[in-house]
Amino acid sequence: MLFQQSILCFIAGLACGAGFLVISSKSPVHSVLSLIFSFVLCSFVLLTLEIDILALIFLIVYVGAIAILFLFVVMILNVKVAEARANLFQYFPLGFFLLSLLYFDLGLLMPASFSVDVAHFIPFYLEWPKAVLSFGCLESIGFLLYTYFPFYLIGAGLLLLLAIVGAILLTLHRGVGVHRQEVSFQNRRDWVEVLHMVQ
């Protein structure tokens, strides 16, 4: 147990260090790479706590899609080094003030211990320990998501639709004078009508 806890502390500390590298490195490429490292380490934290399917989903979506998107944007924009950051500490007092305010706010909100009165919080459908023990994490998510929380699913679908439409509207510019390839026209063309015998 102590071994597992020390491994968890080590991984979480490494993730915090990677996060610090993200915000402190000069080049955007380096900060994106540190972001990938932080994603992987947080996924390891979840894997060590045996929330395995969520860890793998995080690995697929964060590292496989979002970080790749950031790398693509870095390659598109050709940002070599971040612009002059001489006044890095210009906003430091304001930032420190806001951060400490948020920290004390969180400290006020956070209860001292999480000894929850479980019987008070149990909803009508809750038999999680049995469900998780007999079915596993992914199946219990499936039992919950499609029957008890379908509106979250529909909301996620609407959000993804919004992302598709917004991204296409923002970035797609079709050139005016560009000759495009029309595959169906090319396939429809009959070679008998095109071929002529030249004397």
């Binding site: 915090c16 996060g19 610090f20 993200v22 915000i23 955007p28 950031f70 944007v73 870095v74 924009l77 940002v79 971040a82 612009e83 002059a84 950051r85 890095l88 500490f89 210009q90 906003y91 430091f92 304001l94 930032g95 806001l98 951060l99 948020l102």
Partner: peptide
């Protein structure tokens, strides 16, 4: 750290 990254570096949108 994330919030500090937003506040401390207000130069770079990326």
């Amino acid at each position: 750290i994330g919030i500090g990254g937003i506040i401390l570096n207000r130069r770079n949108l990326l």
